[in-house]
Nucleic acid binder design. Sequence first.
DNA 1: GAACGAGTCAACGGGGTGTCGAGATACGGG
DNA 2: CCCGTATCTCGACACCCCGTTGACTCGTTC
Lengths: 216, 216
Amino acid sequence: MSDGAAPPVTPGRGRRPSRATGDDRELAILATAERLLEERSLSAISVDDLARGAGISRPTFYFYFPSKDAVLLTLLDRVVAEADATMGAVFDSPAAGPREAWQRALAAYYDTFRTHRALTVAWAEARSTSGAVRTLWAEVFERWVQRCATSIEAERARGAAPAGPAARDLAIALTSMNERVIYASLSGDGPAVADEDVVPVLLRVWLTAVYGSPPD
Amino acid sequence: MSDGAAPPVTPGRGRRPSRATGDDRELAILATAERLLEERSLSAISVDDLARGAGISRPTFYFYFPSKDAVLLTLLDRVVAEADATMGAVFDSPAAGPREAWQRALAAYYDTFRTHRALTVAWAEARSTSGAVRTLWAEVFERWVQRCATSIEAERARGAAPAGPAARDLAIALTSMNERVIYASLSGDGPAVADEDVVPVLLRVWLTAVYGSPPD
DNA sequence: GAACGAGTCAACGGGGTGTCGAGATACGGG
DNA sequence: CCCGTATCTCGACACCCCGTTGACTCGTTC
Protein backbone atom coordinates (compact mmCIF):
# COMPACT_ATOMS: atom_id res chain seq x y z
CA MET A 1 0.00 0.00 0.00
CA SER A 2 3.03 2.24 -0.08
CA ASP A 3 3.82 2.34 -3.78
CA GLY A 4 3.52 -0.03 -6.69
CA ALA A 5 0.16 0.78 -8.26
CA ALA A 6 -0.26 3.77 -10.52
CA PRO A 7 -1.65 6.86 -8.76
CA PRO A 8 -5.42 6.39 -8.74
CA VAL A 9 -6.32 10.06 -8.29
CA THR A 10 -5.78 12.91 -10.72
CA PRO A 11 -3.68 11.35 -13.43
CA GLY A 12 -2.81 14.46 -15.43
CA ARG A 13 -2.50 18.12 -14.43
CA GLY A 14 1.28 17.96 -13.90
CA ARG A 15 1.96 17.50 -10.23
CA ARG A 16 4.78 15.52 -8.67
CA PRO A 17 3.66 12.27 -7.05
CA SER A 18 4.40 12.03 -3.36
CA ARG A 19 4.56 8.80 -1.46
CA ALA A 20 4.36 7.52 2.12
CA THR A 21 2.49 9.85 4.49
CA GLY A 22 2.54 12.57 1.89
CA ASP A 23 -0.48 11.05 0.21
CA ASP A 24 -2.47 11.43 3.41
CA ARG A 25 -1.60 15.09 3.64
CA GLU A 26 -2.52 15.63 0.05
CA LEU A 27 -5.85 13.95 0.52
CA ALA A 28 -6.41 15.92 3.71
CA ILE A 29 -5.90 19.14 1.80
CA LEU A 30 -8.33 18.06 -0.88
CA ALA A 31 -10.90 17.00 1.69
CA THR A 32 -10.51 20.27 3.55
CA ALA A 33 -11.01 22.24 0.36
CA GLU A 34 -14.13 20.30 -0.49
CA ARG A 35 -15.48 20.78 3.01
CA LEU A 36 -14.77 24.51 3.18
CA LEU A 37 -16.26 25.07 -0.25
CA GLU A 38 -19.56 23.84 1.13
CA GLU A 39 -19.69 26.86 3.41
CA ARG A 40 -17.87 29.70 1.65
CA SER A 41 -16.66 30.75 -1.75
CA LEU A 42 -13.21 29.93 -3.01
CA SER A 43 -11.98 33.51 -2.76
CA ALA A 44 -12.96 33.51 0.91
CA ILE A 45 -10.75 30.50 1.58
CA SER A 46 -7.06 31.22 2.08
CA VAL A 47 -4.15 28.88 1.64
CA ASP A 48 -3.73 29.12 5.38
CA ASP A 49 -7.28 27.83 5.87
CA LEU A 50 -6.52 24.81 3.72
CA ALA A 51 -3.22 24.15 5.47
CA ARG A 52 -4.65 24.45 8.97
CA GLY A 53 -7.61 22.32 7.99
CA ALA A 54 -5.19 19.63 6.90
CA GLY A 55 -3.11 19.99 10.05
CA ILE A 56 -0.03 21.49 8.42
CA SER A 57 1.54 24.91 8.12
CA ARG A 58 1.19 27.18 5.16
CA PRO A 59 4.65 26.59 3.68
CA THR A 60 4.05 22.87 3.90
CA PHE A 61 0.95 23.32 1.82
CA TYR A 62 3.17 24.51 -0.99
CA PHE A 63 5.07 21.27 -0.80
CA TYR A 64 1.95 19.53 -2.03
CA PHE A 65 0.26 22.05 -4.28
CA PRO A 66 1.67 25.01 -6.16
CA SER A 67 -1.36 27.14 -5.42
CA LYS A 68 -4.94 27.23 -4.23
CA ASP A 69 -6.12 26.97 -7.81
CA ALA A 70 -4.21 23.72 -8.26
CA VAL A 71 -6.23 22.19 -5.44
CA LEU A 72 -9.44 23.21 -7.13
CA LEU A 73 -8.15 21.88 -10.41
CA THR A 74 -7.40 18.49 -8.88
CA LEU A 75 -10.85 18.37 -7.39
CA LEU A 76 -12.36 19.36 -10.72
CA ASP A 77 -10.49 16.64 -12.54
CA ARG A 78 -12.57 14.11 -10.68
CA VAL A 79 -15.82 15.80 -11.54
CA VAL A 80 -14.81 16.18 -15.15
CA ALA A 81 -13.87 12.52 -15.40
CA GLU A 82 -17.22 11.61 -13.92
CA ALA A 83 -19.07 13.95 -16.24
CA ASP A 84 -17.27 12.62 -19.29
CA ALA A 85 -17.96 9.04 -18.32
CA THR A 86 -21.64 9.72 -17.73
CA MET A 87 -21.90 11.71 -20.90
CA GLY A 88 -20.26 8.99 -22.94
CA ALA A 89 -22.52 6.32 -21.51
CA VAL A 90 -25.63 8.35 -22.21
CA PHE A 91 -24.71 9.25 -25.75
CA ASP A 92 -23.68 5.73 -26.63
CA SER A 93 -26.62 3.86 -25.17
CA PRO A 94 -29.62 3.35 -27.46
CA ALA A 95 -32.76 5.34 -26.77
CA ALA A 96 -36.42 4.88 -27.67
CA GLY A 97 -36.36 8.13 -29.60
CA PRO A 98 -34.66 11.49 -29.92
CA ARG A 99 -36.78 13.01 -27.21
CA GLU A 100 -35.71 10.40 -24.72
CA ALA A 101 -32.08 10.62 -25.80
CA TRP A 102 -31.90 14.36 -25.24
CA GLN A 103 -33.83 14.04 -22.03
CA ARG A 104 -31.42 11.53 -20.61
CA ALA A 105 -28.39 13.53 -21.69
CA LEU A 106 -29.71 16.68 -20.04
CA ALA A 107 -30.69 14.89 -16.86
CA ALA A 108 -27.28 13.21 -16.62
CA TYR A 109 -25.51 16.51 -17.18
CA TYR A 110 -27.55 18.24 -14.53
CA ASP A 111 -27.19 15.41 -12.04
CA THR A 112 -23.44 15.32 -12.32
CA PHE A 113 -23.09 18.96 -11.44
CA ARG A 114 -25.82 18.96 -8.85
CA THR A 115 -24.15 16.21 -6.89
CA HIS A 116 -21.04 18.41 -6.76
CA ARG A 117 -22.83 21.67 -6.11
CA ALA A 118 -20.09 23.50 -4.19
CA LEU A 119 -17.42 22.45 -6.62
CA THR A 120 -19.46 23.52 -9.61
CA VAL A 121 -20.09 26.93 -8.14
CA ALA A 122 -16.41 27.33 -7.27
CA TRP A 123 -15.51 26.31 -10.78
CA ALA A 124 -17.55 29.08 -12.28
CA GLU A 125 -16.10 31.57 -9.84
CA ALA A 126 -12.48 30.58 -10.42
CA ARG A 127 -12.91 30.74 -14.16
CA SER A 128 -12.45 34.48 -14.03
CA THR A 129 -9.24 34.36 -12.00
CA SER A 130 -7.36 31.27 -13.10
CA GLY A 131 -6.28 30.60 -16.64
CA ALA A 132 -5.92 26.88 -16.01
CA VAL A 133 -9.45 26.66 -14.65
CA ARG A 134 -10.72 28.59 -17.63
CA THR A 135 -8.94 26.22 -19.97
CA LEU A 136 -10.34 23.16 -18.27
CA TRP A 137 -13.81 24.60 -18.54
CA ALA A 138 -13.32 25.41 -22.21
CA GLU A 139 -12.25 21.84 -22.90
CA VAL A 140 -15.29 20.36 -21.21
CA PHE A 141 -17.59 22.83 -22.91
CA GLU A 142 -16.04 22.08 -26.27
CA ARG A 143 -16.47 18.33 -25.89
CA TRP A 144 -20.12 18.76 -25.01
CA VAL A 145 -20.69 21.14 -27.89
CA GLN A 146 -19.13 18.75 -30.37
CA ARG A 147 -21.21 15.83 -29.21
CA CYS A 148 -24.36 17.88 -29.47
CA ALA A 149 -23.46 19.41 -32.82
CA THR A 150 -22.83 15.94 -34.20
CA SER A 151 -26.18 14.73 -32.95
CA ILE A 152 -27.95 17.72 -34.43
CA GLU A 153 -26.30 17.16 -37.77
CA ALA A 154 -27.27 13.49 -37.68
CA GLU A 155 -30.89 14.39 -37.03
CA ARG A 156 -30.85 16.85 -39.88
CA ALA A 157 -29.23 14.34 -42.19
CA ARG A 158 -31.96 11.80 -41.56
CA GLY A 159 -34.59 14.44 -42.14
CA ALA A 160 -35.85 14.50 -38.56
CA ALA A 161 -34.76 18.07 -37.92
CA PRO A 162 -35.20 21.07 -40.22
CA ALA A 163 -32.30 23.15 -41.50
CA GLY A 164 -31.26 26.12 -39.47
CA PRO A 165 -28.23 27.85 -38.04
CA ALA A 166 -24.91 26.02 -38.13
CA ALA A 167 -25.25 23.01 -35.85
CA ARG A 168 -22.20 24.12 -33.91
CA ASP A 169 -23.60 27.58 -33.23
CA LEU A 170 -26.88 26.09 -32.12
CA ALA A 171 -25.04 23.69 -29.85
CA ILE A 172 -23.00 26.52 -28.34
CA ALA A 173 -26.07 28.60 -27.65
CA LEU A 174 -27.99 25.75 -26.07
CA THR A 175 -25.04 24.51 -24.05
CA SER A 176 -24.48 28.04 -22.80
CA MET A 177 -28.07 28.07 -21.66
CA ASN A 178 -27.63 24.77 -19.84
CA GLU A 179 -24.55 26.01 -18.09
CA ARG A 180 -25.98 29.30 -16.97
CA VAL A 181 -29.35 27.92 -15.90
CA ILE A 182 -27.72 25.11 -13.95
CA TYR A 183 -25.25 27.46 -12.30
CA ALA A 184 -27.99 29.88 -11.27
CA SER A 185 -30.03 27.04 -9.88
CA LEU A 186 -27.10 25.64 -7.90
CA SER A 187 -25.63 28.90 -6.65
CA GLY A 188 -28.88 30.49 -5.58
CA ASP A 189 -27.74 33.87 -6.87
CA GLY A 190 -30.44 35.82 -8.57
CA PRO A 191 -33.54 34.57 -10.37
CA ALA A 192 -33.39 30.86 -11.12
CA VAL A 193 -35.53 28.02 -12.29
CA ALA A 194 -36.68 25.74 -9.47
CA ASP A 195 -34.64 22.61 -9.02
CA GLU A 196 -37.23 20.17 -10.30
CA ASP A 197 -38.08 22.31 -13.33
CA VAL A 198 -34.56 22.70 -14.64
CA VAL A 199 -34.46 19.60 -16.84
CA PRO A 200 -38.01 19.94 -18.22
CA VAL A 201 -37.50 23.56 -19.20
CA LEU A 202 -34.11 22.96 -20.76
CA LEU A 203 -35.44 19.94 -22.59
CA ARG A 204 -38.32 21.89 -24.03
CA VAL A 205 -36.02 24.58 -25.38
CA TRP A 206 -33.60 22.02 -26.80
CA LEU A 207 -36.33 20.07 -28.55
CA THR A 208 -38.02 23.06 -30.08
CA ALA A 209 -34.69 24.59 -31.11
CA VAL A 210 -33.47 21.40 -32.77
CA TYR A 211 -36.69 19.98 -34.19
CA GLY A 212 -39.06 22.90 -34.45
CA SER A 213 -39.40 25.25 -37.37
CA PRO A 214 -39.60 28.94 -36.59
CA PRO A 215 -42.92 30.70 -37.27
CA ASP A 216 -43.52 32.89 -40.32
CA MET B 1 -20.50 75.49 -14.27
CA SER B 2 -19.42 74.83 -10.72
CA ASP B 3 -22.64 73.74 -9.13
CA GLY B 4 -26.32 74.56 -9.63
CA ALA B 5 -27.67 71.79 -11.79
CA ALA B 6 -28.48 68.40 -10.40
CA PRO B 7 -25.64 65.91 -10.76
CA PRO B 8 -25.92 64.52 -14.28
CA VAL B 9 -23.99 61.34 -13.66
CA THR B 10 -24.95 58.38 -11.51
CA PRO B 11 -28.00 59.58 -9.65
CA GLY B 12 -28.47 56.64 -7.30
CA ARG B 13 -26.06 54.17 -5.66
CA GLY B 14 -25.67 56.22 -2.43
CA ARG B 15 -22.58 58.35 -2.65
CA ARG B 16 -22.05 61.79 -1.18
CA PRO B 17 -22.06 64.56 -3.77
CA SER B 18 -18.84 66.55 -3.95
CA ARG B 19 -18.54 69.96 -5.53
CA ALA B 20 -15.85 72.19 -6.99
CA THR B 21 -12.75 70.36 -8.21
CA GLY B 22 -13.84 67.20 -6.51
CA ASP B 23 -16.11 66.42 -9.43
CA ASP B 24 -13.16 66.47 -11.76
CA ARG B 25 -11.27 63.99 -9.66
CA GLU B 26 -14.25 61.73 -9.49
CA LEU B 27 -14.68 61.81 -13.22
CA ALA B 28 -10.96 61.25 -13.70
CA ILE B 29 -11.18 58.12 -11.59
CA LEU B 30 -14.11 56.83 -13.59
CA ALA B 31 -12.39 57.59 -16.87
CA THR B 32 -9.23 55.87 -15.70
CA ALA B 33 -11.19 52.80 -14.67
CA GLU B 34 -12.91 52.63 -18.02
CA ARG B 35 -9.63 53.05 -19.85
CA LEU B 36 -7.76 50.43 -17.82
CA LEU B 37 -10.59 47.95 -18.17
CA GLU B 38 -10.02 48.02 -21.90
CA GLU B 39 -6.63 46.43 -21.37
CA ARG B 40 -6.81 44.26 -18.25
CA SER B 41 -9.33 42.59 -16.01
CA LEU B 42 -10.72 44.28 -12.94
CA SER B 43 -8.83 42.05 -10.53
CA ALA B 44 -5.59 43.05 -12.25
CA ILE B 45 -6.30 46.73 -11.59
CA SER B 46 -5.38 47.98 -8.13
CA VAL B 47 -6.78 50.96 -6.31
CA ASP B 48 -3.33 52.46 -6.69
CA ASP B 49 -3.61 52.16 -10.47
CA LEU B 50 -6.89 54.03 -10.44
CA ALA B 51 -5.55 56.71 -8.12
CA ARG B 52 -2.35 57.27 -10.09
CA GLY B 53 -4.27 57.29 -13.33
CA ALA B 54 -6.42 60.06 -11.94
CA GLY B 55 -3.39 61.95 -10.62
CA ILE B 56 -4.07 61.44 -6.93
CA SER B 57 -2.71 59.27 -4.15
CA ARG B 58 -4.29 56.08 -2.97
CA PRO B 59 -5.77 57.45 0.28
CA THR B 60 -7.32 60.30 -1.69
CA PHE B 61 -9.05 57.75 -3.86
CA TYR B 62 -10.93 56.62 -0.77
CA PHE B 63 -12.23 60.12 -0.32
CA TYR B 64 -14.19 59.68 -3.53
CA PHE B 65 -15.07 56.03 -3.59
CA PRO B 66 -15.31 53.50 -0.77
CA SER B 67 -13.77 50.74 -2.86
CA LYS B 68 -12.80 49.59 -6.30
CA ASP B 69 -16.14 47.86 -6.65
CA ALA B 70 -17.96 51.13 -6.07
CA VAL B 71 -16.22 52.60 -9.10
CA LEU B 72 -17.36 49.71 -11.23
CA LEU B 73 -20.85 50.04 -9.83
CA THR B 74 -21.00 53.71 -10.79
CA LEU B 75 -19.83 52.88 -14.28
CA LEU B 76 -22.38 50.10 -14.52
CA ASP B 77 -25.18 52.41 -13.49
CA ARG B 78 -24.72 54.26 -16.75
CA VAL B 79 -24.81 51.11 -18.82
CA VAL B 80 -27.85 49.85 -16.97
CA ALA B 81 -29.68 53.12 -17.48
CA GLU B 82 -28.87 52.96 -21.17
CA ALA B 83 -29.94 49.34 -21.41
CA ASP B 84 -33.21 50.02 -19.64
CA ALA B 85 -33.97 52.98 -21.85
CA THR B 86 -33.23 51.04 -25.02
CA MET B 87 -35.17 48.06 -23.79
CA GLY B 88 -38.17 50.20 -22.91
CA ALA B 89 -38.14 51.91 -26.29
CA VAL B 90 -37.93 48.63 -28.14
CA PHE B 91 -40.68 46.93 -26.19
CA ASP B 92 -43.03 49.89 -26.44
CA SER B 93 -42.61 50.64 -30.12
CA PRO B 94 -44.97 48.81 -32.51
CA ALA B 95 -43.55 46.07 -34.70
CA ALA B 96 -44.66 44.44 -37.92
CA GLY B 97 -44.93 41.09 -36.18
CA PRO B 98 -43.65 39.03 -33.30
CA ARG B 99 -40.61 37.94 -35.21
CA GLU B 100 -39.54 41.50 -35.82
CA ALA B 101 -40.32 42.50 -32.26
CA TRP B 102 -38.11 39.79 -30.77
CA GLN B 103 -35.46 40.43 -33.33
CA ARG B 104 -35.27 44.09 -32.44
CA ALA B 105 -35.24 43.40 -28.72
CA LEU B 106 -32.40 40.92 -29.03
CA ALA B 107 -30.38 43.17 -31.31
CA ALA B 108 -30.83 46.14 -28.97
CA TYR B 109 -29.81 44.05 -25.99
CA TYR B 110 -26.72 42.77 -27.73
CA ASP B 111 -25.74 46.19 -29.05
CA THR B 112 -25.93 47.81 -25.66
CA PHE B 113 -23.51 45.38 -24.15
CA ARG B 114 -21.28 45.17 -27.16
CA THR B 115 -20.71 48.89 -27.16
CA HIS B 116 -19.53 48.56 -23.54
CA ARG B 117 -17.54 45.40 -24.02
CA ALA B 118 -14.91 45.91 -21.32
CA LEU B 119 -17.48 46.98 -18.77
CA THR B 120 -19.72 44.04 -19.51
CA VAL B 121 -16.89 41.58 -19.10
CA ALA B 122 -15.82 43.25 -15.85
CA TRP B 123 -19.40 43.09 -14.65
CA ALA B 124 -19.52 39.35 -15.07
CA GLU B 125 -16.19 38.95 -13.36
CA ALA B 126 -17.03 41.13 -10.37
CA ARG B 127 -20.33 39.35 -9.87
CA SER B 128 -18.52 36.58 -8.04
CA THR B 129 -16.69 38.87 -5.64
CA SER B 130 -19.00 41.80 -4.92
CA GLY B 131 -22.44 41.41 -3.44
CA ALA B 132 -23.53 44.81 -4.69
CA VAL B 133 -22.52 43.98 -8.22
CA ARG B 134 -24.35 40.70 -7.97
CA THR B 135 -27.46 42.47 -6.76
CA LEU B 136 -27.35 44.99 -9.57
CA TRP B 137 -27.05 42.18 -12.07
CA ALA B 138 -29.95 40.31 -10.51
CA GLU B 139 -32.14 43.42 -10.78
CA VAL B 140 -31.37 43.91 -14.44
CA PHE B 141 -31.86 40.24 -15.17
CA GLU B 142 -35.15 40.23 -13.34
CA ARG B 143 -36.51 43.21 -15.27
CA TRP B 144 -35.62 41.59 -18.56
CA VAL B 145 -37.15 38.28 -17.51
CA GLN B 146 -40.39 39.95 -16.49
CA ARG B 147 -40.72 41.83 -19.73
CA CYS B 148 -40.12 38.67 -21.70
CA ALA B 149 -42.41 36.55 -19.58
CA THR B 150 -45.18 39.09 -20.05
CA SER B 151 -44.69 39.05 -23.79
CA ILE B 152 -44.71 35.27 -23.89
CA GLU B 153 -47.92 35.17 -21.91
CA ALA B 154 -49.51 37.72 -24.22
CA GLU B 155 -48.61 35.64 -27.22
CA ARG B 156 -50.07 32.57 -25.61
CA ALA B 157 -53.22 34.41 -24.64
CA ARG B 158 -53.86 35.49 -28.20
CA GLY B 159 -53.28 31.96 -29.42
CA ALA B 160 -50.08 32.73 -31.30
CA ALA B 161 -47.90 30.60 -29.07
CA PRO B 162 -48.61 27.10 -27.79
CA ALA B 163 -48.76 26.23 -24.13
CA GLY B 164 -45.57 25.07 -22.49
CA PRO B 165 -43.45 25.58 -19.41
CA ALA B 166 -44.27 28.50 -17.13
CA ALA B 167 -43.57 31.66 -19.10
CA ARG B 168 -41.26 32.88 -16.38
CA ASP B 169 -39.15 29.72 -16.44
CA LEU B 170 -38.91 29.89 -20.19
CA ALA B 171 -37.89 33.55 -19.98
CA ILE B 172 -35.23 32.75 -17.39
CA ALA B 173 -33.77 29.97 -19.48
CA LEU B 174 -33.69 32.03 -22.66
CA THR B 175 -32.34 35.13 -20.96
CA SER B 176 -29.63 33.01 -19.36
CA MET B 177 -28.71 31.83 -22.80
CA ASN B 178 -28.53 35.40 -24.08
CA GLU B 179 -26.33 36.45 -21.26
CA ARG B 180 -23.89 33.60 -21.51
CA VAL B 181 -23.65 33.62 -25.28
CA ILE B 182 -23.12 37.37 -25.35
CA TYR B 183 -20.53 37.23 -22.59
CA ALA B 184 -18.60 34.46 -24.33
CA SER B 185 -18.69 36.37 -27.57
CA LEU B 186 -17.45 39.58 -25.93
CA SER B 187 -14.84 38.09 -23.65
CA GLY B 188 -13.26 35.77 -26.17
CA ASP B 189 -12.88 33.05 -23.54
CA GLY B 190 -13.61 29.60 -24.81
CA PRO B 191 -15.86 28.53 -27.68
CA ALA B 192 -18.18 31.30 -28.81
CA VAL B 193 -20.56 32.20 -31.57
CA ALA B 194 -19.09 34.61 -34.11
CA ASP B 195 -20.02 38.22 -33.60
CA GLU B 196 -22.33 38.53 -36.59
CA ASP B 197 -24.10 35.25 -35.84
CA VAL B 198 -25.02 36.00 -32.25
CA VAL B 199 -28.34 37.69 -32.88
CA PRO B 200 -29.53 35.31 -35.61
CA VAL B 201 -28.79 32.23 -33.54
CA LEU B 202 -30.35 33.61 -30.40
CA LEU B 203 -33.37 34.75 -32.38
CA ARG B 204 -33.86 31.33 -33.87
CA VAL B 205 -33.81 29.67 -30.46
CA TRP B 206 -36.15 32.25 -28.97
CA LEU B 207 -38.66 31.93 -31.78
CA THR B 208 -38.75 28.17 -31.79
CA ALA B 209 -38.89 28.02 -28.01
CA VAL B 210 -41.76 30.47 -27.78
CA TYR B 211 -43.74 29.64 -30.89
CA GLY B 212 -42.76 26.13 -31.83
CA SER B 213 -44.33 22.94 -30.57
CA PRO B 214 -41.97 20.19 -29.50
CA PRO B 215 -41.90 16.99 -31.62
CA ASP B 216 -43.65 13.79 -30.64
C1' DG C 1 26.39 5.64 11.53
C1' DA C 2 26.83 8.56 7.45
C1' DA C 3 24.43 10.02 3.58
C1' DC C 4 20.20 10.94 1.51
C1' DG C 5 15.59 12.29 0.50
C1' DA C 6 11.02 13.34 2.17
C1' DG C 7 8.66 16.30 4.93
C1' DT C 8 8.22 20.52 7.98
C1' DC C 9 8.03 25.28 9.31
C1' DA C 10 9.79 30.19 11.19
C1' DA C 11 10.93 33.98 9.00
C1' DC C 12 11.10 36.98 5.12
C1' DG C 13 9.86 40.02 1.11
C1' DG C 14 6.48 41.87 -1.62
C1' DG C 15 1.89 43.51 -2.84
C1' DG C 16 -2.67 44.53 -1.86
C1' DT C 17 -6.45 46.81 1.09
C1' DG C 18 -8.56 50.28 4.10
C1' DT C 19 -7.90 53.86 7.94
C1' DC C 20 -6.08 57.72 10.70
C1' DG C 21 -4.61 61.99 11.69
C1' DA C 22 -2.03 65.85 10.47
C1' DG C 23 -1.49 69.15 7.05
C1' DA C 24 -2.84 72.12 2.78
C1' DT C 25 -6.15 74.89 0.31
C1' DA C 26 -10.28 77.68 -0.70
C1' DC C 27 -13.76 80.72 0.70
C1' DG C 28 -17.32 83.49 3.04
C1' DG C 29 -18.06 86.54 6.97
C1' DG C 30 -16.60 89.52 10.61
C1' DC D 1 -7.27 91.34 6.47
C1' DC D 2 -7.58 87.52 9.01
C1' DC D 3 -10.01 83.65 10.79
C1' DG D 4 -12.91 79.61 10.97
C1' DT D 5 -14.84 76.01 8.50
C1' DA D 6 -15.40 72.62 4.93
C1' DT D 7 -13.11 70.43 1.39
C1' DC D 8 -9.39 68.01 -0.03
C1' DT D 9 -4.74 65.56 0.26
C1' DC D 10 -1.39 62.22 1.57
C1' DG D 11 2.51 59.90 4.67
C1' DA D 12 2.41 56.40 7.65
C1' DC D 13 0.26 52.62 9.69
C1' DA D 14 -2.06 48.01 10.57
C1' DC D 15 -3.60 44.17 8.48
C1' DC D 16 -4.16 40.22 5.27
C1' DC D 17 -2.56 37.25 1.85
C1' DC D 18 0.73 35.14 -1.26
C1' DG D 19 4.88 32.45 -2.45
C1' DT D 20 9.94 31.45 -1.24
C1' DT D 21 14.13 30.42 1.42
C1' DG D 22 16.95 27.97 4.29
C1' DA D 23 17.56 25.37 8.15
C1' DC D 24 15.86 21.52 10.63
C1' DT D 25 13.81 16.68 11.74
C1' DC D 26 13.05 12.36 10.64
C1' DG D 27 13.10 7.65 8.53
C1' DT D 28 15.52 4.72 5.25
C1' DT D 29 19.34 2.70 3.06
C1' DC D 30 23.87 1.24 2.36
